[in-house]
């Protein structure tokens, strides 16, 4: 739901970011309020993933200018783990494999760390097991999943479900999902979408970074932003996504160039 009078959750202003000395983001402005769902679309290389990683604090993505606030707090003054504890969640496009570390222990440590940062009680392994099994049911995930190593040998779909499971456990203020829909078959896509929808709440917000419109058949965005060349060149509503689906990006890029010229 669009929430113009709602509390500002994420505020990005004039953000520039470079990777290996090459400037990728050339000035991003974005405001996300509580309860809103934003979709960021755009062609390959437009800077969508860079925006997600810069916000989360990946060390290879150097913020060279601008600012970002989460709940009014300066994000760039925080270490990546502190941003996570402050309620920023990044769903990875390519979740990392960690052989030898079981999903159960990884999820519990993550959960307890974030709970601890919120001044809430941590769960012991037995309590956590009950808690996580409930979440598994919601996401239609086999409990055997808990005993496997983190993402190790997982199929693409399993990895993405694991991301959504982590999001469901950590209950972030703001979830940025970086191409969570890529590489999913239709069933997995539905599960992921259900997971996202079930997390959607009036006091949280979701930013979907996506290449295709099809995820938006299941999750209705309040805003659709189109990125190109490291900038947001157009913002609209769900109908913009449909228009992109039928017309592609070229017409926008051309009109963008026309404006720039």
């Amino acid at each position: 739901m669009r929430n113009p009078g709602g509390k500002l959750l994420l505020e990005v202003r004039g953000l520039t970011t470079s990777v290996s000395g090459v400037e990728i983001l050339k000035g991003i402005d974005l405001a996300v309020r509580e309860g809103e769902v934003h979709a960021i679309m755009g062609p390959n290389g437009s800077g969508k993933s860079t925006l997600a990683k810069a916000l989360a604090g990946h060390p290879a993505y150097k913020v060279t200018g601008g600012e970002a606030r989460l709940d009014g707090q300066d994000l760039f003054a925080l270490a990546p783990e502190e941003r996570a504890r402050a309620g920023l969640f990044l769903g990875f496009q390519y979740p990392v494999e960690v052989p030898g570390v079981t999903n159960a222990s990884f999820l519990r440590l993550a959960y307890n760390t974030v709970q601890g940062a919120r001044g809430k009680d941590e769960l012991d392994p037995l309590e956590f097991d009950d808690f996580v099994r409930e979440k598994l049911k919601l996401l239609d995930i086999n409990p055997a999943f808990l005993d496997r190593s983190v993402n190790d040998g997982f199929s693409g779909g399993e990895k993405k479900r694991n991301e959504i499971l982590q999001m469901a456990l950590l209950e972030p203020r703001l979830a940025v999902l970086d191409e969570t829909d890529s590489g999913l078959d239709i069933d997995a896509l539905r599960v992921v979408a259900n997971g996202v929808n079930s997390l959607h709440a009036p006091d949280r917000a979701i930013v979907l970074v996506t290449h295709y419109q099809r995820l938006l058949n299941y999750i209705t965005p309040d805003y659709v932003h189109v990125m190109a060349g490291g900038r947001i060149i157009k913002t609209g509503d769900k109908s913009l996504a449909l228009e992109l689906e039928s017309r592609g990006y070229d017409w926008l890029l051309e009109s963008g160039r026309a404006v720039a010229a």
Partner: peptide, 10 residues
């Protein structure tokens, strides 16, 4: 970074 993004320090 993956661990950090889940709140777990280095």
């Amino acid at each position: 970074f993956y661990f950090a993004q889940r709140g777990i320090g280095p």
